[in-house]
Design a protein around this nucleic acid. Structure first.
Length: 476
RNA sequence: GUCCCCAUCGUCUAGCUGGUUAGGACACCGGCCUUUCAAGCCGGCAACACGGGUUCGAGUCCCGUUGGGGAUACCA
């Protein structure tokens, strides 16, 4: 395969869509795998939605995922002149013709055709009229070959195509002189020397018309590869209302780019039994042959598993850097890089599916005021725990060193002194006193991370809480 | 309506040219570990949509049915 050139052609919608991201990834991977070029082209012909900001958001999403491009970003709007020239050329060659049908008459005739059980394609009203440029408001239509298959071999779906009669002479230029999608795409792809068009399967049905355009322009079509659409976990079409479809939102929810990339690459592509694919693996292994043909559901559980996998793999410095913004959001203030924080990060990476979850699990470290969970308090901070808590507090206050070993010694001594108590009898009340909840990393590790001062203060506070509550209870 | 496409565990999938106890991963369930929650380890549940063919033999090939998706714009 010589001179592979792929492209990603998003319309700037203000965010990078999950499905688009996968298309971009496949294009990028294919180009990288074959030592080709990956080109970015913004399809901004819809001027309404196309702002600089929404364009930047799409680029930002690509950068975050780690998908670098070799050329561009180009903007389709920059090629307007060229598009017009091509239409003129087609007109001069009689491969296209002007159509003066009004929208109303078009709609009427289409409806009549459908009612009669037909396809509702353009009926060729102006096809042989040979209308000149002075025919009033008009569009330009491509003159399709009268019959014959507009076929192509799709790299994913295999032999594809439709008979020209099933398609009809579609419009390639609006009455205001602007080009339509099909024309713009084909011309731009030709000009950019695109060798492989890898795009969503929603384009599969309108590829035959584009084949006709390539034929009219006497250019060999590129290889097409239509990748099946991804659908929501519900089994329905991905909807921006119901589903999370924005890459940026996944980022905000605490997912790592590596996890997201791994997740989407496996949605419709596989490599034997392997599940873990970093960008480097993908650029080495990706192939069109192993892309499936059926739509894949995007199940979040798999993403979460992958995310935890990658969180566990991160180096401490990377983890710190990635987790920090989320930690600071919970802390509502800057979070200092300390040995305790690093230790906590290591403890929490085993228990977090996302960085957001990790930050939530760290709330007792990040905030001065802890939130007591009602159930946990009710179960563990009861009168019967007072003896244990007081004994532990006393011994902790005298501790000459604040380490896991020393704390473990204290706990064992107290357990033995109070009648060979089970460790749970001591650990759980302390855990609730110190974190507010009934789950956390190992109790000694938790206390070391929290520090002596805060530990003692919180246990004291919990003891007071129990005493005050029980006093009220006996008053009744 | 009309055209086109798709169809293996709940989910993502393996399954190369027909011969497998239909494999893996996630999820789920159980066990071990254990001061809690996780993680880890071990084990389990679970699929060829249905009906016809072709064949000695079909998840693999053909047809139909059903189900799902897409396309039918002077959107992209």
């Amino acid at each position: 395969m010589t001179d592979v050139r792929t492209r990603f052609a998003p319309s700037p919608t203000g965010y990078l869509h999950l499905g688009s991201a996968r298309t971009a990834l496949y294009n990028w991977a294919f180009a990288r795998r074959h030592g080709g070029k990956f080109i970015l082209r913004i399809e901004d012909t819809d001027r309404e939605r196309s702002t600089r900001e929404s364009e930047e958001a799409v680029l930002e999403g690509l950068r975050w995922l780690g998908l670098d491009w070799d050329e561009g970003p180009f903007r389709q709007s920059e090629n307007a002149q060229r598009h017009r020239e091509v239409v003129e050329q087609l007109l001069a060659q009689n491969k296209a013709y002007r159509c003066a049908c009004t929208r109303e008459s078009l709609e009427l005739r289409k409806q009549a055709s459908v009612d009669a059980g037909g396809r509702g394609v353009y009926d060729g009203h102006c096809r042989e009229l040979d209308l000149g440029p002075d025919c009033g408001p008009h569009t330009v239509r491509l003159r399709l070959p009268p019959d014959g298959m507009l076929g192509f071999r799709d790299a994913v779906f295999g032999p594809s195509g439709q008979d020209a009669s099933q398609i009809g002479d579609a419009i390639i230029q609006r009455s205001d002189g602007s080009p339509l999608f099909h024309l713009a795409v084909v011309v731009d792809d030709i000009d950019m020397g695109i060798s492989h068009v890898i795009r969503g399967a929603d384009h599969h049905p309108n590829t035959p018309f584009q084949i006709a355009l390539y034929q009219a322009l006497e250019v060999e079509p590129p290889t097409f590869a239509h990748i099946p659409l991804t659908i929501a976990e519900s089994g329905k079409k991905l909807s921006k209302r119901r589903d999370n479809v924005s890459i940026q939102q996944f980022q905000e929810e605490g997912y790592l780019a590596a996890a997201l990339v791994n997740w989407i690459v496996r949605l419709g592509w596989s490599h034997g039994d392997e599940e873990i694919f970093a960008l480097d693996d993908i650029r080495r292994l990706f192939d069109l042959e192993s892309v499936g043909r059926s739509a894949a559901r995007a199940e979040i559980a798999k993403l979460q598993w992958l995310d935890q996998h990658y969180i566990k793999q991160l180096s401490m410095n990377e983890l710190l850097q990635q987790a920090r913004p989320h930690f600071e959001r919970v802390a509502e203030r800057p979070v200092e890089d300390t040995p305790e924080l690093r230790k906590l990060l290591d403890l929490l990476r085993e228990r977090s599916k996302t960085l957001v979850e990790m930050a939530e699990l760290a709330h007792w470290y990040l905030r001065d005021e802890i939130e007591y969970q009602e159930k946990a308090v009710k179960k563990h901070l009861r009168g019967s725990a007072l003896t244990v808590m007081r004994a532990l507090l006393e011994r902790m206050s005298e501790a000459e060193e604040w380490s896991e070993e020393v704390l473990e010694g204290i706990f064992h001594d107290v357990a033995a002194a109070l009648g060979d108590l089970k460790m749970g009898k001591l650990a759980q009340p302390i855990r609730v006193a110190v974190t507010g909840g009934h789950s956390s990393p190992g109790i000694f590790e938790t206390l070391v991370v929290l520090g002596e001062k805060r530990t003692i203060q919180r246990i004291g506070q919990a003891i007071e809480l129990i005493e005050r509550r029980d006093a009220v209870a006996t008053d009744d």
